[in-house]
Design a protein around this nucleic acid. Structure first.
Lengths: 260, 260
DNA sequence: GCCCTCCGTTGCGTATTACGGAACACGGTG
DNA sequence: CACCGTGTTCCGTAATACGCAACGGAGGGC
């Protein structure tokens, strides 16, 4: 059991790669013991133990007392702070996000483009939080989210084609998988200044997003509101778009977008 | 140049330790190139290159294009989300923090105890943000911060002694370094229900903090407001404490603290 | 109270693995 | 065009991290 499935890139530093895999595992599962970690990575217990020991020494991993399962440690926040510190839209968007979430009563996210994915960099939960899950850090496909469509629509046609190279993976029954239809949707998104996502990412989940503009008038981020289908009905969309636009204008100005 | 200064724990996995050191370096400096990283860690360029390559493959590190300096990557947010997701006070405290920061116009932080340090887990900047720096993830000494004193005062006497074992390191001219005086301050903190920090951490920096209580009536976190000395004057303190208390009560209730 | 099981850690020998050295590409610059 | 400073690639070596097995502790069932 040398390779767990796929071929390992020889240029990677094995132990570092494994260490990161442990962190990802913990981020996914919340908690795990050494034995579980070792089994999951396909390495020996002793190896897993040593890796975890190293991570613990750096406080990237912690456990309740002296014994018991491990979880992501507080030391991680230092790095998270470094990320959010360099992203203006996080620093400035936090408050915007919170107030908007309160007004709408729905979960509000700010997402930016990262490679061919949309990454949620900030989140605020609405008062009526059902099954409140954490979306921060989640990478979602561009064609199956409202934020993704908005970010995509803000790119040049060439970028769009490049980012959409490859198949449009279906995430839910209603995901747009036809490139032709997606292009049409993106055109409308650019015209309307907002995008929706009606059960295209997860069944029962609706979302709406609007762009945030940077100093040069380009789309630097997207603000989205998401909620269960029964609450985020189609006829509420105009109202929500209005609220999102107000917040977006506010944020855009703070990011240096010339007032229109 | 095998050991860069201190003796290395043989049980540590060297490459993982170095990888984390790289991340810490980037978190501190913001950006760095391979050569700089290698020099800083005291390793060969090729080693640094490989470590960075591995981290980049996992998106913990990124660079602008194909070339140029490296910085902490967005992949980190996934882990940060995992941390904040498991900490109720972050999840629930975010909005509280934001609104309070807006009302006060000062930077507001939520901190929890981690070992013998106070870690800021959430932050919101006030409108009048001067030299707005990021405190999230920063570990501060307990005796030199308002949050630290509050957290400390909420511990049992035995814990207090244990946490304060060792010298009280001076951080600024006015840091409390006398154990006897610190004990007196902690007693007053417990009585008054708040603590101040008057240029004890950094010259020109004032702060006030109040405790947040958990389900069992214990102190689980501290909310603090910080600002420049000229603005956070002594006579504004009562007003700020009032605001902090309101927010703290709100947050405490949300965290399951029985309403008093 | 005892044993039994499960979990995580520690020593140890080995060969895999990551390291350091040097040469190599690639831009930017004078 | 040559030069400097990047970062990457190749290669041989030995340090290093790995797997194995035995150990020590906690908890649970009988």
């Amino acid at each position: 059991m040398r390779n767990n499935g796929e071929e390992r890139d020889a240029a990677l530093v094995q132990s570092v790669d494994r260490a990161v895999a442990i962190l990802e595992l913990l981020a996914r599962n919340g908690e795990a013991g050494i034995t579980e970690i070792a089994a999951e990575l396909g390495v020996h217990k002793s190896s897993a133990s040593r890796l975890v020991y190293t991570l613990r020494a750096r406080e990237l991993v912690e456990q309740n007392g002296e014994r018991g399962p491990f979880r992501i440690g507080l030391g991680m926040l230092e790095f998270a702070g470094a990320v959010t510190g360099q992203l203006d839209c996080v620093r400035l968007g936090g408050p915007v996000c919170s107030t908007l979430a309160e007004r709408l009563g729905e979960t509000v996210n700010i997402a930016v483009l990262d490679g061919n994915r949309a990454v949620n960099v900030s989140q605020a939960r609405g008062s009526s939080a059902v099954a409140a899950q954490n979306w921060v850090g989640r990478r979602t496909p561009l064609h199956a989210t409202s934020s993704g469509k908005v970010l995509l629509a803000g790119e040049s046609p060439e970028s769009q084609e490049r980012l959409l190279a490859g198949d449009l993976e279906p995430c839910a029954p209603r995901t747009i998988t036809d490139p032709v239809r997606l292009r049409a949707v993106l055109r409308r998104t650019a015209e309307d200044g907002y995008a929706t996502c009606i059960e295209e990412l997860e069944p029962g989940l609706h979302a709406v997003a609007v762009p945030v503009f940077g100093a040069h008038g380009d789309v630097v981020a997207a603000i989205s509101a998401a909620g269960p289908a029964y609450r985020l009905s189609q006829k509420r969309i105009p109202e929500i778009v209005d609220e999102l636009r107000t917040a977006s204008r506010d944020l855009s100005v703070r990011m240096g977008h010339p007032v229109s």
